[in-house]
Write a protein that binds this DNA or RNA. Structure first.
Length: 410
DNA sequence: TCTGGGGTCCTAGGACCC
DNA sequence: TCTGGGGTCCTAGGACCC
């Protein structure tokens, strides 16, 4: 552990203008031209469109006004998923320590790879080349000692860049940056701080933690204090699982016309169906059902209910959502409704129990020889704990590689 | 800028438990 | 009749991220 302290070994790899880059890759006519993905709101835009002032999440009308020559294309989610899978392949071929953050970015810890394949910078150079060659997409990589710094570095290095922050240069890099570069400073926090004349990360670093806590609350205050002082102890972790699965739908403005009960129920049925399908496909069960509303004035409200037992059954979830919906019908009638969503949280694995058992491998002996006895021990342990009849299926899980090998038939 | 769809984490109060 | 100190779980809302 000592040996890794003080070395910049964390990579933050972030695809540039991801959806728009996939569109430009797949349609040569779009290359070099401003591209906007998504009509209603901008889901992504190419750097040519960004040059006109177009930004992600901007309204479509405003975007077309800023950039009339832009080509607007409908999103093709399957193409983006496939591209993401291919890019994550490249990541995992680089190091098993990959932590996905979203469809288009991940942290990679390459600390253990120095002797084998080179310095983090060399690895980052090769990674960028490989993504370009194998998937055909531009990617920016930030390299630093902590996750947070690596993330800031990739943001500053964009587009199609590589930015390394050596340990000795961290504060000089960090402190002049505007506060909005900090992970966790959004519009609200930004305003609160700017109203007090705080503009740069360095300004935050000069404020006592207690004062930041007084301004922003204990969570955000301590968090920003730590980041501004370049403290971020988080490790790169694999196998992070989702805590909730949800779906929502925009309905358009109701313009005072009340939505009929059948209309709302049809939306709810479709949402529940989608979500429970996805849960079953992922072998996940959930207990907390959340109904999310957005009104004509774009204010939000949520209502939730926690079931006694986790489930992924369509009818159980639907009944809970319908009960929640009945409680808010008066609100919807007076305030109008533009968006309706549900999500199911508190996700569990579908009845699965994981055991992590260490095993030893004698010098000179093969992996198979060591694993066999270890598996017998694991199965015995599961059977004594839960009863032989309760165990209907068992799989061997590889910790880092997503390996999943059946040990018992269903 | 007038608005998509998917998430995460934090806060705060109330009910309840020992 | 008054009252510690520790905790969990649930609900609702807010801020933020991509």
């Amino acid at each position: 552990v000592e040996a890794t302290v003080g070395r910049a070994t964390i990579l933050h790899a972030d695809l540039d203008a991801f959806y728009a880059s996939v569109e430009q890759r797949d349609d040569p006519r779009l290359r070099g031209r401003p591209v906007i993905v998504g009509g209603g709101v901008v889901l992504a835009c190419s750097y040519e469109a960004k040059a006109c002032g177009v930004k992600t999440a901007m309204g479509g009308k405003a975007a077309r006004r800023l950039c009339p020559q832009a080509i607007v294309v409908d999103p093709r989610m399957e193409a983006y998923s496939a591209a993401s899978t291919a890019v994550f392949e490249v990541f995992r071929n680089t190091t098993p320590l990959v932590e996905g953050i979203s469809i288009d970015e991940a942290f990679l810890d390459v600390g253990g790879l120095r002797r084998l394949v080179g310095t983090p910078t060399e690895i980052a150079v090769r990674l960028r080349r490989a993504v370009r060659a194998e998937v055909g997409l531009p990617i920016t990589v930030g390299v630093a000692r902590t996750k947070f710094l690596a993330k800031v570095a990739s943001a500053v290095g964009k587009p199609d860049g590589l930015l390394v922050v050596p340990p000795g240069a961290e504060t000089a890099f960090l402190h002049p940056l505007p506060i909005e570069r900090l992970w966790g400073v959004g519009p609200i926090t930004s305003r609160k701080l700017r109203d007090r004349g705080i503009r740069t990360v360095g300004d935050i670093a000069e404020i006592a933690e207690a004062n930041l806590v007084a301004m922003l609350g204990p969570g955000a205050g301590r968090h920003l204090h730590a980041l501004a002082h370049n403290r971020d102890p988080r490790h790169v972790t694999t196998n992070r699982r989702r805590g909730s699965i949800g779906s929502q739908r925009a309905l358009g403005f109701s313009h005072g016309r009340p939505r009929s009960a059948q209309e709302l129920d049809a939306v709810v049925v479709a949402l529940v169906d989608r979500v429970t399908r996805r849960m079953r496909a992922a072998d996940r069960l959930g207990r907390t059902i959340v109904l999310r509303l957005r009104f004509d004035d774009f204010a939000r409200a949520t209502r939730s209910h926690t079931l006694s037992e986790p489930t992924a059954h369509t009818s159980t979830v639907l009944a809970a959502v319908r009960a929640l919906l009945r409680g808010v019908l008066p609100m919807i009638a007076t305030r109008g409704l533009t968006q309706l969503g549900i999500s199911v949280g508190d996700l569990d694995d579908d009845g699965a129990v994981q055991l992590a058992l260490p095993f030893e491998r004698a010098a000179g002996s093969g992996l198979d020889a060591a694993i066999g006895p270890a598996l017998d021990v694991a199965l015995d342990e599961v059977r004594t704990r839960f009863g032989t009849a309760a165990v209907t299926r068992a799989v061997l899980l590889g910790r880092d590689q997503g390996l999943s090998v059946p040990l018992l038939p269903d």
